[in-house]
Design a protein around this nucleic acid. Sequence first.
DNA 1: GTCATCATGTAAGCCGTTACATGATTGC
DNA 2: GCAATCATGTAACGGCTTACATGATGAC
Lengths: 217, 217
Amino acid sequence: MRYIAQVLDLAILGVLMESELHGYELRKRLYDVLGWRATVSFGSLYPALNRLEREGYVKAVESSSTTVADIPMTGSFSGEVAAFRAGRRGTVRGPRNKKVYGITPEGERRLGALIADPADDERTFALKLAFCRHCNPQTRIDLLVRRRDELARRLAEPRANMSGHAGGNRYVRALRDHDTETIAADIAWLDGLLVDETAPTDETEPRPDGGTKGQDR
Amino acid sequence: MRYIAQVLDLAILGVLMESELHGYELRKRLYDVLGWRATVSFGSLYPALNRLEREGYVKAVESSSTTVADIPMTGSFSGEVAAFRAGRRGTVRGPRNKKVYGITPEGERRLGALIADPADDERTFALKLAFCRHCNPQTRIDLLVRRRDELARRLAEPRANMSGHAGGNRYVRALRDHDTETIAADIAWLDGLLVDETAPTDETEPRPDGGTKGQDR
DNA sequence: GTCATCATGTAAGCCGTTACATGATTGC
DNA sequence: GCAATCATGTAACGGCTTACATGATGAC
């Protein structure tokens, strides 16, 4: 079975959707956005970037104005010389031998497809939600509902009928009870997001009174 | 770096500590105890059992009285014959070609060492807690404190200074806020467990007024 | 000139999965 | 007899990590 929704693809395309970045910076950004949830190592990040480039979803760009912290032209020449010396002439490289990637139109479509793909788990859901503003409202609602249903299913499942035998000790029970509460809270949160989603407010940010977080929690 | 605290070892030794089981049943029990958290596939379970047997932590036992649902002697003979016919004479097998495992004294020590090992993550923590009643109080407290500290660290970390650039959209914010709340709830839960742990109540189960769950949440 | 950090990559291996294969037992 | 379930295993592979290797750049 071929996985469609891979964590790395989602993560990379998602952050590249926001801005052009090179691998090293991309990883940091990913951490900023998703914290401990997405600790991607370089050993998997760089091969993934190369693969995505081969597949045409991202491409190396001149590290131009769009990049966040970009030293305009100082030292750029020596950097280029260094890159030249290093024999890296095949690809587009920036000053510090950086290779800045941008997302292609195909990549954008791919990201949309990844988010829309109904096969999601713990890891992919967070990523999909983080980047779901790039897809249409219905896909977004579907994502939230799907997640909600999955959590509801977990709440409903029998789980540990500890009648009679050892195994139902206090620690297992504590764990199970806490799970139940956490899942219930998650569902409430998702319901809140769904309300926001169906409410016909404009997508622009300000709105001083609580929109995402609010009174129902 | 050699991992000490492997999920499978913890899970297998932990449930075998409760009762003697064969692989198939063990997996179900594991699900009962830990739910979606520990979905171990047979493809990894059986090799792991064999490995643990080689290492002397578990051993095949006569599927005797201790097993939960054990058909005493009916059809047992034909089962043995079948097992004989199947050429399984090397090892101890039950009626349905079952191989029932029990934990050895070395296995118990191993389980204790696994629980005490300070390298824990999301997956191992739950398992350790589930089976921690088999280890001494201080190890248990250490485990809880370690987890608490880790979560507190996550709460404290800067995470997403979204000043200025795209990336701080409402969905990322919703995710981050929800994370914060979940972690805070987890810490409160751990604090509750720690209070229970330090309070000098006996470990026996009854105690009508809330012990594990309580008034502070 | 040297150290920390930035930056990119490769190789090996771990931990686990899915898919497949086999056979026993039970229920109908 | 036949299907569903119980029960155990193997083979292939997938995704990700750690450890290693290389080099550029900036700070001092």
